[in-house]
Every structure is written in structure tokens, then in C-alpha cells.
Amino acid sequence: MAIIEVRNLVKRYPRPDRKSEFFNAVDDISLEIQAGEIYGILGPNGAGKTTTLEMLEGLTDIDGGEAFIDDICVNTRPFEVKKIIGVQLQANEYFDNQSLRELITLFGALYRRQIDPLELLGRVHLTEKADARPANLSGGQKQRFSIACALVNDPKVLFLDEPTTGLDPQAKRNLWNLVQELNQTGMTIVLTTHNMEEAESLCQRIAIMDHGKKIAEDTPRKLILKHAPEPPEAPLHGSLEDVFLALTGHGLRD
């Protein structure tokens, strides 16, 4: 059963060089994400990953097409959608001078829910940091905390925007475990990443985006079979990174 349905999604922005002209940052994207899967969106910087997520989250206006999450239309009822999704953004700063416990309680209040901060912090293994301030957390702890904030409303879908960027290998693996734990409770997880290993080991299905378009979509294994160039006789010796580079080219992006 598809929990997220996206049809012909378009986002237009003014060109950075010529303000009077527009370009499609997201260009006719259609997705069908199944309930309970971990779905990864890959792509170079500027491919439109974050913009796609922001449209699904109701942060950015949808300029064309339509999106449904759990059969609720994002175009027309964004505030209803916000009630059933959890979002972790790339920037994760919070109000100053507030402890994790207080911030979790505040986020609960935004969904009109009374929650037990310690129980929730326990789920992301931060119980002993309940009285610390976010500023004093390590990178991995910060990410886990922002996932905890995204869980206050028991979301059906959890959006993670580059959750492991900037984390050390231990923190990265720790976060993957957390994502898998959450997925085992039946939560659908949509994440963007630059990390091929992450996409390969964590995601059940992957879409690769470039220049606002979806250029490939499948399970990691099938993508490797299909696109990894060499050695062609033993395709699984190639990696997803080979797929990514074969599809998006070797040119540097900003």
C-alpha cells in the first residue's frame, strides 16, 4: 500500500543569474512510497532532493502536480499532513537555554500532546542527557535529538534530510541502527543522502535525482545490476557509488 503518492511534482525558482527567468528545481517528479519502507533519495547538490522533501512537508508551495500522504492532499490540507509526519531538517538549532526535556515537552505541546520526554529520549538513547542543552551535544547526539523531536507526534512518515552528513563512522552507524529500529515499528522513513553506503545498506528502495528529475528508481541491488559499469560479468562487485557516478557524471557540483 502506498503511503506517499507524488504525481508530476514541479517547483519553479527564479534563475540565480537572470532573476526574470525561471527554472524547474523539481521537474515533474512522481513517486510512490510504500508504507513501512525506508526510501532513499540520492542526488548531487542542487538536484532538488531537499526541495522535494520541503514540498511534501508543506514548507514550500507546490507549483505543479500533487502529493498525498496517507491519502491527505498536501496541496490543499498541509496542516492536516503536518500532524502525521515527523521532520528532521538539515539545520537543527533550537531555542537557547532550554534543556532537551523542555524542548521535547514544547514540541509535544505544538501537536497538543502530553508526552513523557524521558521515554522518548530513551528511544534515541539520550536519557542521560535529558537536562543538557542542545548546544552541548555532539554531532551524533544532536541528530538523534532532532529525530526525537520529530517523533513527538508518533508520525506515520518520518522525513530525514541528510541525517548522517558530518557524522563520524561510529555516530553514523549508531544512527542507521536507530533508523532501522524505528522502521521495525512500522514507520515509513524517507531520507536524502550523499552517502552511498548508507543508501545501500539502509534503504529498501532508492530514487536518484539530477537536475530536478528522477533518473532512476529501484532497489539498491537491482540498480547495481543494471547500471554499475564494470566488471559486467560480476555486477555485484561494483558499488552503488559506481551507479551514482555513471548516472550523474563526474563533474563537480556546488
Binding site: 508543506g58 514548507l59 503536518k82 538539515q90 539545520a91 537543527n92 533550537y94 507526534n153
Partner: peptide, 14 residues
Amino acid sequence: RKGILKRLFVTPLQ
């Protein structure tokens, strides 16, 4: 600047 407004805006806060 801190992205707090954005974070609040993905909740149902009016």
C-alpha cells in the same frame, strides 16, 4: 537564522 522558524513551521503550529 537558526532555522527555528522552519522547524516550527513543519509542525501544525498556526
